[in-house]
Design a protein around this nucleic acid. Sequence first.
DNA 1: AATATTTACGATCGGTCGGTCGGTTATCCC
DNA 2: GGGATAACCGACCGACCGATCGTAAATATT
Lengths: 211, 211
Amino acid sequence: MTIDGRIARGDRTRAAVLDRAVARATEDGLDGLSLGQLATDLGVSKSGLFAHWRSKEELQLATIDRAAEQFREHVTRPALTAPRGVRRLWALHDHRIAFYESSVLPGGCFFAKVQFEFSARPGLVRDRLAGIFELWTEFVEGLAREAINTGELSPETDTQQLAYEIESFALTAVMKSRLLLSPDIAYRYARRAARDRLCALTTHPELLPEV
Amino acid sequence: MTIDGRIARGDRTRAAVLDRAVARATEDGLDGLSLGQLATDLGVSKSGLFAHWRSKEELQLATIDRAAEQFREHVTRPALTAPRGVRRLWALHDHRIAFYESSVLPGGCFFAKVQFEFSARPGLVRDRLAGIFELWTEFVEGLAREAINTGELSPETDTQQLAYEIESFALTAVMKSRLLLSPDIAYRYARRAARDRLCALTTHPELLPEV
DNA sequence: AATATTTACGATCGGTCGGTCGGTTATCCC
DNA sequence: GGGATAACCGACCGACCGATCGTAAATATT
């Protein structure tokens, strides 16, 4: 089987557009994205974009999916190489902060930005974001339950509460790093907060890194 | 001295516009605000708005100031009635969550929304937001230092780290309550996280409320 | 070589945006 | 009562928005 060059070209264009859209959305938001500007940036025509997505909303949904994929690549997948338990929980948080630190996305975090943008705006975009965020939360809670199973966390640990707190530290790092503090300081707070919390809860604090 | 009716009318209009602008900005953002829509909502003409603010940016800046004033009314001032120390620190967090809970602002929190919106967009708006946020952070850190002075927190307590963590819990409550969880649950997480943290740090846990 | 398919483009549409301007109305001062 | 002042309005502007459509170019199929 040979590859259809036409479709391959379309795929390449789509990927380039979505990567650019994810990056720009971290600065201007998903609605702040202008199709004309996006097209100009990429050296294509605005009407060319409509050949791939029939409306702006469809492009926004595709952008969200691409951002999720990117997040999995940079954060979730590498974190899963750590052994189950508090180390994996820590690895997830640490890789997440490192991803923000790396400035792959100029605005820091796609989902933080866009979730606030659409949190009060009903529609398909909001629903998609809510779905992804729910899966993410359940994933983190699942890692916490694994840590209970490995005996590194007490069975009485409130995994939802713990997931909430870790989420908090990461989310705030995004905002503080861009608006206020030098990024380094914000990320240090975020890391230390999560480490201290895990350290206080776990029966095996030696599994966690030093300060 | 009598009050100039013309100026009084202007003041009334200005206040009405700004209150509405603050509320709407929590849903659509400060840039998502359309002057035409805002005017229509208030039953005034668009050009009437330009009589009070010479540009959209000027209106945005005034809106920020009004939101800060509103925040002080509902959160900062009532919290200052609590005695210095961990109780005041807790009161600040508690009143803040209660303010979000009250749904005075339909989108939950003006500053959370707008800070994310402008965190990557240089300009006067961003600078104003950063300034207010810095003052706020220093204010919280100051309360934490007071708690050290009253002997309710250990002198070794990292007040900046503590302020960061409390900020995190409140910020995340805003997002989760609107996007994902039923608001009650999110606010419960936010309260419990801050209470537990203060409880673990203070030498006088009996000063804090029960779970 | 002829035809079908897919991508991409230029021109253009109606609508909304922020912003301007000349004029009207209400209130205050003398 | 007559200016002066301040608030406010309706009409209008150029720019940009998302979206549509007919067409050209590139690639595949036959």
